[in-house]
Amino acid sequence: MRNILTPMMMPHRLIMAALALAGLTAMALTMQWDWLPANLPRLWDGLLMTLAMLAGSVVVGFALALPLALFQVMGPAPLRWLSLGFCTVIRGTPLLLQLWLFYFGLGALFAQFPEIRDSWAWPYLRQAWPYGFLALTVSFAAYQGEVMRGAFTGVPHGELEAARAVGMSPWLVFRRVWFPRALHRALPTLAGEIILQLKSTPLVATITVTDLYAVITRIRQTTLLTYEPLLLLVAVYLCLSGILILALRWLENRVPTQR
């Protein structure tokens, strides 16, 4: 009998769920949602942009985080200081400021040197998303670099020595032992880092990238509604975070955990 009463079915939770449902129904009925159907395509485009920003910056940022971490762990002094300095500066200043520095700072440069407009890169440079992508990537690389640095140093020395003792080359030790073990150690924090990254993406709206947040802002401007679009935005981000957490938990469970 007891196992039928799953956590979700506890009486107070049922009541709370009912209250929440009642609240949602009240919101749906009393608030103004007539703008929603016509704006669905734009919202979808915005969502795709948000996801593209997230996925792109996580993948590239992670690739950059590895050298940043390795340089700090075993690099020659200049490289070590450089990557340490990079991580400190990026982690010590607001992402919004970095974003505006990239976008408007470089913009001031373009105004001074119109020659840049003739270069092959101009079609990209004149768009907004590359700057958003750059800032997000750099930020993810710095934070993840710090995590990976800890993970690399955290791999027990004995394991590496054992690998060397059986005659593995340094590269093989890295590829087969050090890196997989470090990655394994860093995996539990990865979910949190990716969620944090998702939460940073709306900042790109301030440099005219049309992500989900920007679409909602535009809707707020045309409908002049204070709450409804913002509440929809909260709901969408809640869903995205939930899906990400589930997906990463699934991934984590697939990695064998032998200690």
């Binding site: 001031a108 373009f110 004149r126």
Partner: peptide, 11 residues
């Protein structure tokens, strides 16, 4: 201001 800055920048 930021629009005009971007106009000057050619973006």
């Amino acid at each position: 201001d930021e629009e005009l800055q971007d106009l000057a920048a050619g973006r």
